[in-house]
Each structure stands twice: as C-alpha cells, then as structure tokens.
C-alpha cells in the first residue's frame, strides 16, 4: 500500500461517513484476551509485533490518517485550548518532534522523509502534502510550536508528562480525540490527581504500581497497553468541552440501530522516555469499530457479548454503557453460540 488512495475521505462528525475496510477490521486492536474484563496493569514492551497489526510500527499510520488530521484541525479551530504546553515543556516538544519524524521516516519511507543536515531539517509528509525545511530547536522556523506542529500530523492524542519530585505532571498535550477528559482541566496536575475520578482502581493499588513503572520507563525501551470504552457514533471528539454536542447521542440508540451506532473505542497507549527533556510522552491512539463490524470476526462477537454481559455495574457506567447496555447485550447475543473462544486478542484462522 504505497499510494495515497489508501487514505479515506471521511468524517467523524455530522454525517459520520467514517468506515473501516475489511483489512482495518482484521487489524483492529481488540482489547479482551479472555471472556471477562477487570482492570490490570497490562503493560508490555512496545516492540514490533505481528506484521500488519497495529503493534508493528512505533506510531501506527492507518487509512483514517488524513481525515483524522482534518478533524483535529477543526477541533483546534473551535477550541485552541485542546493544545497546550507550559513554557518549560518546549524542549519536550522538540524531543517528540524528533522521535516521531525519525520513526516515521524509517518505518514508512513511502510516505515520510526526513533529511538532516546538522540543524537544518527537511521534512516531507506526502499524505498531507507537506515539504518543509526548518531549523531544529528554533521555534521561529515552524508555523506552530514543535509539539503542535508534529501533532497536527500525527494520529492520536499525546500527553507529555514532566518527571520531577518522584511524580509525573501533565504539563503539555494535544488532546482532541479523548474519551471524555479535558487537558485544560488536567493541565499541571500530577498522576494521582488526574486519575482521581477512576472508580475502584485506586483501592486496588493500580495507580501506585503504574506510577512506579512509568517513572522507570527507559529511553529505547517504550511500553504499551490497551484501554477501551464505548462511544455512540464514530466520533473522535468526545470531550467534556463539547459534551452538549454528543452527550445526548446515547438517546438515539435503540434495538434496531445499536449495531451501527455503538462503537467500541480502543486506545493503544504507549509510553516513551524523551531524551533531552527526560519527559515521558504518552500517546493515546484511538481506534473505533462499530458493533456490526466487530461481529464479523466470530471470536470477537462471542467474547464481546460475554464481557459486556458480565461487566460490574460501576465499570459499565465508567465505560460509557449507561442506558445502552441492554441493547448492546441483546444485539451481541445473536453472535454468541456458546462455543469456547481461543486465548489472546487476535482473530482466529491465521
């Protein structure tokens, strides 16, 4: 897939023309490795794994790339506070720009090129029709700050966490595809503060263990995990700031349309130590799939039914299933014949 025809022309709002190709469905990061779900510190090294999967590249670029970047630009136009960087995080922004440019140029040479001549860098991004020469570490040579510049060309939300006083601080980020949390609200908070609203997990000691792990993430040894929630419509921008625009969507769900409207929203989260700033960057890459597309993979249809049916109530609320859960269970039950499922997250027959 080297041509630019690979990229869809689609929307994540209003008429919602977003769609997944059969290839995108097969490579969807289904997050359940067994027929039930509970929190866990499900971290693993972020190393290349399974060709064609979303785990193959450092920063996955898929068929939704160009349209996602258009949606991000629309969000920023309406609400510039979705992208913020405290003054001391400028170097971390350059770190991130360097990391993404070098990885993408090496892993997707058909789409991206980086030519470095000392501090003079030329960056070519073919899908977005960008060919730009700038001076590394000189903000005046970019149209935006370094983080915003590269984030307008990168799928997924990115939080950049400053590390100090044995804690992580959310001091910069580009957050336009979030599952109902706000950068503007969390900016400047530490790890325990911004995770305050999560139910059950504090009592389980999940965050103490996770913070300890994250403080020790090393350069050259990134880690990853999957997280999930549910969203009505393939809407990327489900932010508290725009709750008035999407909060009532769930009222539209009924027994007839649940398969088209309800989407499983999976976040591929990874964790990278940045070299110059020593900050930790936390990409949160969002993948959306409708229940009817999900059910085309028999193993996922069976398992998803069982997971949602048996989910504790507190988690169902937190995962965006208030009101809609009975429809989801009823709809998914038609794909669950009671047969056993194989271990692991991947589709069978491969």
């Amino acid at each position: 897939m080297t041509t630019l025809d690979f990229f869809h022309d689609e929307t994540f709002r209003d008429d919602f023309t977003y769609w997944n190709s059969p290839e995108a469905i097969r490579r969807f990061p289904f997050p359940f490795n067994e027929d039930k779900y509970m929190y866990s510190v499900n971290l693993e090294p972020h190393v290349a794994f399974k060709p064609g999967s979303v785990f193959e590249k450092s920063f996955d670029v898929d068929e939704h790339y160009v349209s996602e970047m258009r949606d991000r630009a629309l969000v920023l136009q309406e609400d510039p506070l979705r992208c913020q960087s405290l003054p001391h995080m400028n170097m971390a922004g350059w770190d991130l720009l360097e990391l993404i440019m070098t990885k993408k140029a090496a892993e997707y040479p058909q789409w991206f090129e980086l030519h470095q001549d000392g501090d003079r860098w030329r960056w070519v991004n073919r899908p977005l029709d960008i060919d730009h020469t700038f001076t590394f570490l000189d903000n005046t040579t970019l149209p935006y700050g370094p983080m915003e510049y590269i984030m307008r060309q990168t799928q997924g939300d990115y939080a950049i966490l400053d590390q100090r006083d044995n804690n992580l601080w959310m001091d910069a980020g580009m957050i336009t595809t979030q599952a109902d949390w706000s950068l503007d609200f969390d900016l400047g908070m530490n790890f325990m503060e911004w995770h305050g609203p999560v139910p059950l997990a504090h009592e389980m000691g999940i965050f103490d263990r996770a913070l300890k792990f994250l403080l020790n993430v090393r350069q050259g040894q990134p880690a990853r995990r999957l997280n999930w929630t549910m969203t009505v419509n393939p809407r990327l921008d489900t932010s508290p700031e725009r709750y008035a625009k999407w909060g009532t969507d769930r009222m539209d769900v009924n027994a007839d349309n649940v398969g088209q409207l309800m989407h499983l929203r999976v976040e591929l989260q990874s964790f990278w130590r940045l070299p110059r700033s020593n900050a930790l960057v936390f990409p949160i890459r969002c993948y959306l799939i409708s229940l009817q597309d999900l059910a085309t993979i028999p193993k996922w249809g069976r398992r998803f039914h069982r997971v949602i049916r048996d989910l504790p109530d507190e988690l169902a609320d937190y995962k965006g299933l208030t009101i809609t859960r009975p429809y989801v269970i009823e709809y998914m039950s038609q794909f669950d014949d009671g047969a056993p499922t194989s271990p692991g997250i991947f589709a069978d027959d491969e």
Binding site: H88, M89, M91, Q219, G220, P275, N278
Partner: peptide, 12 residues
C-alpha cells in the same frame, strides 16, 4: 547501555 537521566535540567 542506552542513556539514563536521573539528574536532568529543570526547565522551570
């Protein structure tokens, strides 16, 4: 080893 930084500049 890869570099490890336990004594970085505080840019605040």
């Amino acid at each position: 080893s890869h570099p490890v930084n336990l004594f970085h500049i505080d840019r605040r």
